[in-house]
Design a protein around this nucleic acid. Structure first.
Lengths: 174, 174
DNA sequence: AAAGCACCGTCCACAATGGACTGTCAAGGA
DNA sequence: TCCTTGACAGTCCATTGTGGACGGTGCTTT
């Protein structure tokens, strides 16, 4: 009956509470709002949208310019979202390729490893500063729930940078 | 020619440097050594092993008791591993369902959210203490590369706990 | 002796990923 | 005015990953 949703599909329904959006819009809002702790891809979003439309959780509107096709929430979509939200969230999943490279670092020329480390450090520094830039606005006007998730992102990025800076010289700067 | 590996397959080759192992052994070593930042499943390990055997990167030995079938590294497996390790590691992937629940927390009864939060906090506290228990041994005798990855795990878990403890009352304890 | 359990591998349906591919419209430069 | 460029929008597919059911085997303990 109630088609059991996956977390990605449920998130899309969550975003659709703010009004009709196209797949493209959903991808970009998801990236900015939950992208730091929930990855999703374009293919996935369109697939979920199609199957949720089949299930009647969502309804496609008329195709606009550039094949733009907005989806809006239906009452049963709303219900399915609430039902999903009630379920115990599962454990987190992390896949961090750099740590694989570091872990097997003994098989790699030290300068090469150090270069990869430096590249990634820079990427995280950039992300942190982006998060910190939006922090005051989110904290002051947003709801506490979104604020908490952004806080997680900031703490995560800070932690990663500290880890980089605590790396022994043999790894970070041979 | 050189069959381009994926990270999971490459990790298996990495572990096989320590000597022949069965799929089962590989699953358990991977879980303990890289499980905190690289997830893999049994099905996946056996599939990769089979396809790497086809490609000659790995060679199956004689079946022992309990269908135990050890695989050993071949020279071309060694080469493929090194080649993979040279490649720029990609960005990390995180999927943290609890943060989704928190982010959409406005749609959830506060006590329910608080209960989920508490459950997850306990799980992370447990993991941290497990990591801290093995830390001295790894730091003192292991290689610095493995030590660095465990250090990441510890910092990550500590950060998560701090985040839990910084949550506003409305979320953590309504 | 048998019962239970950890060990070992297979199989399958389904979900997710990443990137190639096609096409559309807007804005600015020649 | 026309043309190029690039952001926008969606589709498709091969590969990779997940989760769990299933079947068998050989220690260990009672």
């Amino acid at each position: 009956m109630a088609p059991q949703l996956n977390a990605t599909a449920a998130s899309l329904l969550g975003f659709l509470h703010a009004g009709p959006m196209t797949g493209w819009d959903l991808v970009t809002t998801a990236e900015t709002l939950i992208g730091d702790f929930w990855s999703l891809t374009r293919s996935q979003v369109y697939r979920e949208l199609a199957s949720m439309a089949d299930a009647g959780l969502v309804k496609a509107g008329a195709t606009g310019p550039r094949e733009r096709r907005p989806y809006r929430l239906t009452p049963s979509g709303r219900a399915a979202f609430r039902a999903w939200l009630q379920r115990e969230p599962g454990p987190e999943l992390i896949r961090f390729p750099l740590l694989l490279t570091v872990g097997f670092g003994r098989h790699l020329p030290p300068e090469k490893l150090a270069a990869y480390v430096a590249t990634h450090r820079a990427r995280h520094a950039k992300r942190l500063s982006e998060f910190e830039a939006v922090w005051p606005a989110v904290r002051d006007d947003g709801d506490p729930y979104l604020t908490a998730t952004l806080d997680f992102g900031i703490r995560y990025e800070r932690m990663v940078l500290e880890w980089f800076d605590a790396l022994p010289q043999e790894i970070a700067d041979p």
